[in-house]
Write a protein that binds this DNA or RNA. Structure first.
Length: 365
RNA sequence: GUGGAUGUAGCUCAGUUGGUUAGAGCGCCUGGUUGUGGCCCAGGAGGCCGUCGGUUCAAAUCCGAUCUUCCACC
């Protein structure tokens, strides 16, 4: 178990690495498709394997509410329950408690909240989150944190960051299963000294990996990159760095250059369900637009995914306009293929020492 | 043929006792969507109100003719 750096970029902070878990190896930099409720929406595990997805996300908050831990326990863990035998990373539930639920009451022990599904009351704190993630049996466990809203004034951001730090220390003290790796999460909003302080505190506690949270929450893109520039240098170089919830193709490349190894984002799958398809230059097209009704070219001429090898824009637009499930499935497949392949190209360029060049030219086509 | 109904945005329809630049839903076009509620949000384009004539200061609205479509009867 653990992280090994295979090669470093001579020009940037980018690295090519391998993270070993109980369910296999993860080649970094990596993009992790999101499978919140024990399903990467519209994809079967078999299709994800064909796409070369090496690791997917699951979510403590959602799985805790439905189907509940008793059922996951009876299924003997999330891997068996959903028939996915590759690595799984589970989010701690902290983010969702703040973004989805209502009637939150925060105490030193955790958060009282009302379910976004039916309003029923629950409590989630670091002890509960770790216990749940132990039952889920995920390979990578995230510490319980509070995602500081944006914008936040300094005092609010500081208070929130310190609360997160205390919860993360409690998370670290909980017992996990053999092989489960715990990642800490840096907070601190957009303040340089808070980010540094958060990073240093986490390093003191000691985690198998370090995530950067509280970004891509509405701040300008340049601000996000700036926060990465402030934060990553304070993380242990030999541990994996995970940027939570990011991002667009351009943000992935730019964040790799700033030393990030892991990403997760709903963008490719959510946009696919809403009818947006990624092109190789990193932009999207709205496949539902009337102008595609007579366009018999593939979604992306430069793509060799199953969708682009077999189907036309006109056909997929038709599927969307009549509400056929296959439309969402094909675009999800295509968008994930694009993201996963983009990361493979990043890794290839790191291996050959050509990342800096790739960074400049990768969206030119 | 007779009687009744109908005609307003691409589609389905609202438009009160005549009163400023005629509305809605869907569709269409532009943006947005970042640790997931198969959505949603913000803008925009688009109408000689079937046609012709009349009444009136003023007509989608009242009157006449005509055409369209539908129903019933013969």
């Amino acid at each position: 178990m653990g992280f090994k750096i295979l090669k470093k970029c001579p020009d940037t902070r980018a690295r090519r690495g391998v993270l070993t878990t109980p369910h296999g190896e993860i080649n970094t930099p990596i993009f992790m498709p999101v499978g919140t409720r024990a399903s990467v929406k519209a994809m079967s595990p078999e299709e994800l394997v064909k796409l070369n997805a090496e690791v997917i996300l699951g979510n403590t908050y959602h799985l805790f509410l439905k189907p509940g831990m008793e059922i996951i326990g009876k299924a003997r863990g999330l891997h068996k329950f959903m028939a996915w035998d590759r690595p799984i990373l589970t989010d701690s539930g902290g983010f969702q408690v703040f973004s989805l639920s209502s009637l939150r009451k925060i105490t030193e022990k955790g958060v009282h909240f009302a379910s976004h599904i039916d309003g029923s009351r629950f409590f989630l704190g670091p002890e509960e989150s770790m216990s749940i993630q132990r039952t889920l049996g995920s390979d990578i466990v995230m510490a319980f944190d509070e995602c500081t809203p944006y914008p936040s004034d300094y005092k609010t951001a500081e208070k929130s960051m310190l609360q997160t730090t205390r919860w993360e220390a409690v998370s670290r003290d909980q017992k996990l299963n053999d092989g489960q790796q715990l990642f800490g999460i840096v907070q601190g909003s957009m303040y340089k000294d808070l980010r540094e302080q958060s990073a240093k505190s986490l390093v003191e506690i000691g985690f198998e990996g370090y995530a950067i949270g509280g970004l891509s929450v509405g701040e300008p893109e340049d601000t996000m990159f700036e926060v990465l520039d402030w934060t990553v240098p304070h993380l242990p170089e030999e541990k994996p760095h995970y940027l939570m919830g990011v991002g667009t193709p351009k943000q992935l490349v730019e964040s790799v250059a700033r030393g990030i190894d892991m990403f997760d984002c709903v963008i490719p799958t959510r946009l696919a369900r809403h009818g947006s398809a990624y092109l190789s230059n990193g932009t999207t097209i709205p496949i539902k637009a009337g102008r595609y009704s007579n366009d018999f070219a593939p979604v992306d001429e430069n793509c060799d995914c199953y969708c682009c090898r077999n189907f036309s824009r006109a056909y997929i637009r038709h599927l969307f306009s009549v509400g056929e499930i296959l439309g969402m499935r094909l675009l999800t497949l295509h968008n994930l293929y694009y993201f996963i392949n983009l990361m493979r190209k990043i890794r290839d360029s790191l291996e050959t020492g050509a990342f800096a060049e790739f960074r400049k030219t990768c969206f030119n086509s």
